[in-house]
Design a protein around this nucleic acid. Structure first.
Lengths: 336, 336
DNA sequence: ACTTGGCACTCAGGAACACAGAGTGCCAGC
DNA sequence: GCTGGCACTCTGTGTTCCTGAGTGCCAAGT
């Protein structure tokens, strides 16, 4: 029902509208893209495309604008992801290579992505639950107070102050630390609870209350952080462009929960996810699209990142940028 | 040269303009505030105030609007900081009390402040340089790789991976750790360099290269973080209000350096700093005002926080909120 | 020396109106 | 099935006019 030329027309409408931000008419379209047919023919095709719901006109006698459905077809079948230029790739590499710790990697990534796409970038911190324990440290602070530090293989560090039910000696602490590390080293965070379940039993009677307190805080740490942290950058890029709903968009960006859902569930590793306009789970963000991908070191996806922009964004370029950044971040993370 | 009534008129102009966001005329002013004089008299006073530069009219035959100079006088002499309501104070306490670690305290604070003032809140992380070492931890990761973890009395944790020049045994590491902690415990971060300067000399010859490497990374950590981290929240509050320059404001908010300068130098502890419109160091932020204060545990100021809003903000209320939040955060930090 | 009522003047913002231009839909002819 | 022509329909823009709020100034009153 949609022959090749009609698809070409749709592609042309999307491309022109994205670059000019104005409804595109049959005449201009027939000229700019050499379709080899007259404006009248284009008009007929447009009428069909409109009937099918791929494009629409803001008001009678204005040009046509793609609908969400139109963008969807464009992304799925009519466009090709555009790779970055060599210069851009070099810029990414050098910019990310300078990072000193995990925090720095994430911060740099989100800024990089925002700058590259001139849109709002969103990056999720590498998930705790999918990483493994590298080291557990217990630091005595006072007689009845110690600090619990958990270091993961992704370089993430979590710490908690623990109030103890009784006074403990330093060598008791040292013993517990050794025991914890022996059991947990390399253990996936998801498997920590079952791994330490029987640990108190392997201790002398008098140490158990203290151990139990510490372990419960440790478990709490894992649970608390189950909702992962997401940060964004490039909000300034919203200012020039957006027609309406700027407030809604900014509000959504500051809601961790919404952001998490936006980035989507973990999918195929390195597969790009695109959500267009009303496909969005959050009503304040109709009118915006999200391009997201997972990233990680090696095969396992640690977290997700993406960009958010107006529905009329340049999908091929944006998708290229997101994919490239996701890959580079993965490499950096694997290398450190 | 400005008698009491003229000051009263200025105050009235500021208050009315803040609450209505429209130029205020002589008639409305004489009615709403019972000044006991006629509109004509008010007009005369206004003419004088305008000549002196405290107010201005957007165009002939419109009401008057305060100038930056007018707001300045208002803040310095005509207004009184408005304390929070009991309900608000309770809300602050319960909201901040639930924080589990330093990161959480800062995040909650910035959101709280944004919500309370309905403006953009800005909070600086407690400064490393002004805090003291609580513990240094060395965690062996591989034969020639260890992780250095630095814990401060404000609960902040810094970590770095260190590549060593040679293979070290675990007990060597343990020895160095003990030595480090013995020398540095309670040491102000600013004094760390001098404190560890002679440390290699107190080690056996063969340990010195390793120690030197670790110490240099430790020093690097301190220097790197000298530029402190600043976060913001409540950007959505900009949307409804701001007339122009929204893009500039958002850009400024994402520039750490600009934010730092905005919050200002450490002043008298717990003294409120107010910067109005063009008093601002950054040209993109004329049209906005900043109310900031230092916060800390006990007497020493650890960092600063504040809010940013349109020049026509409600200064008494905003100042009250900033002061209150700064105090509560200080208490929370001291208690943990 | 201030304050006050009166009065003429100014100007932004809104309503009414006309008009040019872009774009469409449809039809007849190739 | 494509194309040129033509009548039609809108939005956006520019013009004009008018109202109303607000001012500045002046002369009179206290």
């Amino acid at each position: 029902m949609l022959d090749d030329r009609k698809l070409a027309v749709l592609r042309a409408v999307v491309e022109d509208y994205v670059s000019t931000n104005e409804p595109v008419g049959s005449k201009a379209l027939a000229e700019r893209h050499n379709l080899g047919v007259s404006p009248a023919t284009v008009r007929n095709d447009m009428a069909v495309l409109e009937e099918q719901g791929y494009i629409t006109q803001p008001h009678t006698s204005a040009g046509r604008v793609p609908t969400d459905k139109g963008y969807r077809l464009f992304v799925d079948r009519l466009s090709q992801i555009k790779p970055l230029s060599a210069a851009e790739r070099r810029a990414i590499e050098t910019f990310l290579a300078g990072a000193v710790d995990l925090d720095d990697v994430v911060t740099r990534t989100v800024r990089l992505l925002a700058q590259l796409t001139r849109q709002v970038a969103v990056v999720q911190y590498p998930s705790l639950t999918r990483s493994t324990v590298r080291h557990v440290e217990l630091v005595p602070l006072a007689e009845r107070r110690i600090m619990l530090v958990l270091i993961t293989n992704t370089g993430r560090v979590e710490q908690r102050v623990v109030e103890l039910p009784e006074i403990v000696a330093d060598d008791q602490v040292a013993h517990l630390r050794a025991l914890l590390n022996a059991s947990l080293d390399g253990c996936g965070l998801g498997r920590v609870p079952e791994t330490i379940a029987d640990l108190p039993d392997r201790l002398p009677e008098e140490d158990r209350p203290v151990a139990a307190t510490i372990l419960s805080v440790l478990l709490e740490t894992l649970v608390d952080r189950h909702d992962e942290k997401v940060i964004f950058a490039g909000a300034a890029n919203l200012a020039g462009d957006f027609s309406v709903g700027l407030r809604e968009v900014l509000e959504a960006l500051e809601e961790q929960v919404v952001l998490m859902r936006l980035l989507g569930e973990a999918g195929d590793h390195s597969a790009l996810m695109v959500r267009i306009g009303s496909e969005n789970p959050y009503s304040g963000l109709h009118g915006t699209s999200i391009v997201a991908a997972g990233y990680g070191s090696g095969d396992n996806e640690l977290a997700r990142l993406g960009v958010l922009g107006p529905t009329r964004m340049d999908y091929p370029v944006t998708m290229g940028a997101v994919r490239a950044v996701a890959r580079y971040v993965g490499q950096i993370l694997a290398g450190s």
